[in-house]
Amino acid sequence: MKLNLKVWRQKDRNSQGQLVDYTLDHLNPHMSFLEMMDTLNETLILNGEEPVEFDHDCREGICGQCGMMINGIAHGPLENTTTCQLHLRSFQDNETIFIEPFRSAAFPVKRDLRVDRSAFDRIISSGGFVSTNTGQAPDAHSLPISHQLTEEAFDAAACIGCGACVATCKNGSAALFTSAKINHLVLLPQGKEERQERVINMVQQMDAEAFGHCSNTEACEVECPQGISVLNIARMNYEYNRALITRK
């Protein structure tokens, strides 16, 4: 099959970028989207041009490193899928595809399609953990946790930190990412001890990183590769309100 690509090219953080047209022919529809990008780069290199920089690593949808805006949709047309899990069979022959980086003020473009998502790391660093040092743990069975609670916590913990929620949010809000971690930990008895400090610190850090407000459009849940529920955001609000009221 044949594809007409419009790929965002940008030299570095401070440069202006632009869309550049490329055409690829004789593509196999079973190819993954990133393999198509590999093919493009191979062609560019052999033509003496610089290849397109894009984020990717595990290519099985779990590391969270890949992420592109494909035809204006985070991770492309399929719901709950990462870019690396997308295959060309999801596109038409001779289709024109826009490929842009995830955009948000908190995710500056580093080059071409690569963006800086270290803001997420700083949010985790501000409170997304249980304060337990190595070697302090009691026996795992000393703390029964119901099956249902574990599953609920897991649903939130499944976040891969790809940033699609921010890229797809019209407000550039990181509420889904932040709330997923807050809820993963607050649902479990281990994490309850620090619930007040955690939610306050993480929300403050989220704001400091220039993310926008959540206005509950719920687009993030639709595009999230792991289908993290927007109810996490409601629960973060609950935790935050609770902390403001009960904090000493």
Binding site: K6, W8, L19, M69, N71, G72, I73, A74, F98, E100, R103, S104, A105, A106, T168, C169, K170, N171, G172, S173, A210, F211, G212, H213, S215, N216, T217, E218, A219, C220, V222, E223
Partner: peptide, 21 residues
Amino acid sequence: NKKATAPYKKDSRGRASKWYS
């Protein structure tokens, strides 16, 4: 919110939410 976002050349993000939201 406007400051927190950057425009896309092609934007189909609307498919995931309601216009009035």
